[in-house]
Simulated scan of single mutants.
Amino acid sequence: MQASAISSFADFDDRRITQPNIDQHWHRLSTAQRFAFYTLAKLGYQLLFVRQAKNEKTAVARQDGQLVTIDSEGDIDFNPTLVLRENR
């Protein structure tokens, strides 16, 4: 039983291995998110990724250690409650 569980886990598609490039994330942004990100980019923020849950897309950007999120409406949250995998 243990060997079969390990072999089925090895077939699991881990998204951390193959990350979409920045252009793929850019195309996932809504128009409002793109305009909001333009403002952040002028301040030195970089787009990290876009996550979609049901009908909500959330863009995550970072400047140094400061994370921000941009919701589908283009509203920027400069103090999100978000923990990245690399920071766990």
Score class of each variant (00 low, 15 high):
Phe37Gln: 02
Asp23Arg: 14
Phe37Tyr: 12
Ser72Asn: 05
Asn79Val: 10
Thr31Glu: 15
Glu56Arg: 07
Ile22Ser: 14
Gln24Asp: 14
Arg85Ile: 12
Ala3His: 10
Thr58Asp: 00
Tyr45Ser: 04
Arg51Glu: 12
Thr39Leu: 11
Gln33Ile: 02
Phe12Ala: 06
Arg34Thr: 07
Ser4Arg: 11
Phe12Gln: 08
Ala59Gln: 01
Leu67Lys: 06
Gly74Glu: 00
Pro20Asp: 03
Ala3Val: 11
Leu48Pro: 00
Met1Arg: 10
Thr31Pro: 07
Ala61Gly: 02
Phe35Ser: 12
Gln66Leu: 08
Val83Lys: 10
Ile6Asn: 04
Glu56His: 04
Arg15Gly: 12
Ile76Pro: 06
Asp71Ala: 05
Arg88Tyr: 13
Glu73Arg: 09
Gln52Arg: 08
Ala41Asp: 09
Ser72Gly: 05
Lys42Trp: 05
Glu56Tyr: 02
Val68Ala: 07
Gly44Met: 06
Arg15Gln: 13
Asp75Trp: 10
Asn87Tyr: 09
Val50Glu: 03
Asp11Phe: 04
Asp71Phe: 03
Ile6Tyr: 06
Glu73Ala: 14
Gln46Tyr: 06
Gln2Cys: 07
Arg28Ser: 09
Arg88Thr: 08
Thr39Cys: 05
Leu40Ile: 03
Arg16Asp: 15
Glu86Leu: 07
Ser72Arg: 05
Asn55Leu: 12
Gln46Asp: 13
Thr18Val: 15
Gln2Tyr: 11
Leu47Val: 01
His25Leu: 02
Val68Gln: 06
Ser72Ala: 08
Leu82Val: 05
Ala5Gln: 12
Ile17Thr: 11
Leu29Ala: 03
Phe12Gly: 02
Leu43Cys: 04
Thr81Ile: 11
Ala36Trp: 00
Thr18Leu: 13
Ser72His: 02
Ala10Lys: 11
Pro80Asn: 01
Arg15Phe: 14
Phe12Leu: 10
Gln52Val: 09
Phe12Cys: 05
Ala36Pro: 05
Asn55Asp: 15
Asn21Ile: 04
Pro80Val: 00
Ser8Pro: 00
Leu82Tyr: 00
Gln63Glu: 13
Arg51Gly: 11
Ile22Met: 09
Ala32Gln: 09
Val60Glu: 02
Gln19Asn: 09
Phe78Met: 06
Ala41Glu: 14
Ser72Val: 03
Asp77Thr: 05
Gly65Thr: 15
Lys42Cys: 06
Gln24Cys: 05
Lys57Gly: 04
Arg51Lys: 10
Arg16Lys: 14
Ser8Asn: 08
Thr58Val: 10
Ile76Thr: 09
Phe49Met: 10
Val60Trp: 00
Leu29Phe: 01
Asp13Glu: 15
Asp64Gln: 15
Gln24His: 08
Ala61Phe: 02
Ala59Met: 05
Gln66Ser: 08
Asn87Trp: 13
Thr39Arg: 14
Ala41Cys: 06
Gly65Glu: 15
Ala59Leu: 05
Ser8Ala: 09
Gln19Cys: 07
Glu86Gln: 11
Lys42Thr: 09
Asn55Gly: 11
Ala41Ser: 12
Ile22Arg: 14
Ile6Phe: 08
Leu48His: 00
Lys42Glu: 14
Ser72Pro: 01
Ala32Ile: 00
Pro20Glu: 04
Tyr38Thr: 13
His27Ile: 12
Leu84Arg: 09
Gln46Arg: 13
Thr58Arg: 04
Arg15Ala: 15
Thr69Gly: 01
Asp23His: 13
Ile76Gly: 06
Val60Asp: 02
Asp13Lys: 15
Pro20Trp: 03
Gln33Ser: 01
